[in-house]
Design a protein around this nucleic acid. Sequence first.
DNA 1: CATTCGTGAAGACGAAT
DNA 2: ATTCGATTTCACGAATG
Length: 302
Amino acid sequence: MDETASRNCPECGGSLIVDEEHGERSCEACGLVVDTDEIDRGPEWRSFENGDNTEKSRVGAPRTPLLHDHGLSTEIDWRNRDAHGRALSARKRTQIERLRTWNRRTQAKDSKERNLIEALSEIDRMASALGLPGAIRRDASVTYRNALDDGLLPGRSIEGVSTAVVYIAARQADTPRSIEEVVHVSRIGRKEFTRTFRYLVRELDLELAPPDPRNYLPRFASALDLPDEVEYRANELLTVAMDAGKHSGKNPVGLAAAALYAAAQLTNVEVTQETVGDVTGVSEVTIRNRYRDLLETDGHSP
DNA sequence: CATTCGTGAAGACGAAT
DNA sequence: ATTCGATTTCACGAATG
């Protein structure tokens, strides 16, 4: 990808080569780096467009330097007058009319792209904090674009929609994160999240199956330092309960939490309802009720 | 004392009206 | 827009060890 530049090295006079990968221009002969970052690689698009997901992730938002337009955009007055206040000719007027149109269009495009830059950055940040892989981030970005193109953004915050699409993408990929987890790495509260989430699902006609509680087990078991056997038995309990249809209508996170607690009891592993509840974000009461159900269904109470 | 268990009031939600 | 039914959560006290 190297390309010989026209200028020469100020040190030794050798020809310069451009390293597009790093945006550097260096001397072929002496290796002197003449200037850096001459090539504008644009904002975040790259990890999104070409499939290479080679850890372009950033933590924290790279603030766009153009939060407002720095007065660079042009306003065209609505009055059809020239600088002296005289009326414009018909020919001049239609010309100005065209200018207005294009001015509006480019500004609309800019605002859309700025919106997208901000959103993609937030999606990446949250997905990273949640340990979600690149494929899911891309799915989330696609959903965000769809929402943006459908004009679903006005009235909702970028952060809210970004959070929702991350949650949706994780669920669709059978790598669900709980609402608590997602909200925890977001800047919005639970209330706004659920409102925005439902709104998106409805408006985009998304078909979202309820999360399989078993998909929560590995992470929760690991976070609770529970042995593999507990996780395995929890999986069994859930499978039995689901075959019996005892899971529908119940919070999948609560089921997973209760299954882990129940399995720990059955295998004589020490865990309290409180710690399970803290880690999973489920109340002790719910753990009690669910784990009672689970044991009963599996035949442990008579 | 720590943990578990059970309960009533209250909030959120989806479905039905 | 309101109501209804199921569920979850909170706060509390009792029982258990």
